[in-house]
Structure formats: structure tokens, C-alpha cells
Design a protein around this nucleic acid. Sequence first.
DNA 1: CATTATGTTCTGGA
DNA 2: TTCCAGAACATAAT
Length: 298
Amino acid sequence: MPELPEVELLRRQLERILPGRVIADFECRKPKLCRLRGIEAAGPGELVSRMRDLLVGRRVESVDRRGKFLLWGLTGGLVLAVHLKLAGQIVVVGPDGRELARGGHWAPRPGVPLPHRATHITFRLDDGSVVYLTDIRQFARLTLMPAGEVGPFLREFGLGPDGLREPVDAERLEQVFRRRPKAPIKAVLLDQAVVAGLGNIYADEVLFATGIHPLRPAAGLTRPEVEALAAAIPEILSRAVAEGAGPVVGDRAARDNGLPEVHGREGEPCRRCGTPIRRLRVGGRSTYFCPTCQPLSP
DNA sequence: CATTATGTTCTGGA
DNA sequence: TTCCAGAACATAAT
């Protein structure tokens, strides 16, 4: 998905729109995107209608975030957890047809009329505005559950501390790293148990900022390197939020001066030393780094 | 046609 | 048994 910064930016938009609104209708054309948790199981054929019955008439009270999950607090003690995964997108259109919010990944691009053919879920609100969830790859997930289930639900994903709201503890990082003797640090940073919210782009950014080669075994990092990582993670994530995050948004000038500094810049000169940025594959993901600033041996 | 894509989970082999 | 790389998920853009 969208990584933490983009989810946070979307959360801030939704927080100005959704709270106070009542869900007037809910439609879903792809039942597999929907889940119920801690609520009496319905047959697969009844899942969407059950979910609709539970959602319609409820007021949104809050829009929270944990890692890459958006958490909509609803009246009656229910919470809707939304995960956009790789390609999910939320667009809110006001009663007058004007766009009020947009966040998530690519298709459909701005200007493409909604609902798009990949718009699988639609919420109609009591003031006439509409929330569209579009996902060209159908990986996004909506889970409706009682508020008491949120803790266990997130625990099942092994979510670690949120990369933005809690300081990252170097001590704990070191412990987690020691349990992965051979895994490259880049792969370990993608594990949401380490820091919830880091994804492929910002894992690269954090390693560049700290001068650590992505293939270094996590367990082999020195204490000062782990401390540098712990400091860099919240710093980079909050900077990304401040800059408006994401290579998809942002104009050319922002891209030249702001984040991302290495990700997606193969062949471009490193901003610090001028060496061409290189790309390799780690854990199946494209990984960008500066071979000079991020040496393989410390 | 081949490659790539901001995420997560499962499988199978070492 | 633990750990890790790769495949799978489903589709579009380049």
C-alpha cells in the first residue's frame, strides 16, 4: 500500500469528513474483500448483506490508524479496519460532486470518473457524500469487528509499535534483529512486527539515511547503527508526512529535493556523494541504495 | 512478450 | 524445528 505516511495523510483527510456522518448505505461487489471478526458467522453468501445490516445506520465517531490499518470507530462499539494493501484507493466525493479526499495507490488516476470498474465498495453517507474504495488488484481488506476485538486482531498481524506515534526503542530493535541471524536488514525492516508502517520505499530511505547496506545481516549491525536506525525511522516517516508523501503525489520540485532520496532512483547520482544509485532485489522487492554511502562491510 | 508495481501470507526446502 | 526465499494473490502500465 501506501505506506504509513500516505495512510496517515489519508487518515487526516477522512478525520475532517467522516466523524459525525451516518452510513446510509453500503455496497460491495467483491465479497472476498470483506471480513467479520468476533461477530456471528454468516454463510459466505450472506457476508455482504450481514455487513451492510451492521454498517447502515451507524455514525462514524473516529478515524484512527495503526501501522497501515485505518480504523473507523462506529457507534454501537464496532470498528471497521481498512487495509489498502498494494493498490487500494479511497476517494470521497461530496454531495455537490466535488472531491473531498483521496488517498492510496494508483488506479484510477485523478480525473477518471468514479465508480471505476475496479470500485468494489461504496459507502453512501447521510449528507449525500460517497466514499469509494477502488482496488485494481483486489488485495484490500475490510474487517468489521467489535471494539474489543481490535487488540487481538492487530496482535494476530504481529504489529509492532507504530513508526510515527511511538519512539522506536533501540533496545527492542536489537532484540528483534538478533532473532534473525541471516536475514538481510532490508527484509527485516519490512516485517510489521519490527516497526508497524514501514514499507518498501521507506525501508530504503531509512537505510540510506543511516548508511547501512540493505543486504547486511540484521544481527550483524553494531549498536550505534541500531541506534541510528531507531532515530531515523520516526524522523523519515514524519518528514514524509510533512512533505505530503509519495512519488505519485507531489510536483517535480518536491521530488527533486524531498523524499524519496534513493528509492526509484536507479542510475541517478547519490545526493550525498554523486555515485550512481544501484538497484537489487531483496525479499522479492526492488531495493535501491548508494554503494558508496552504504558499504557492505561496516 | 517480459518486467514491474507503496503488501501480506503461505509453502517448501535448507 | 527454525528460518528464509520465492510463489501466490490479480491487474495494469511500461
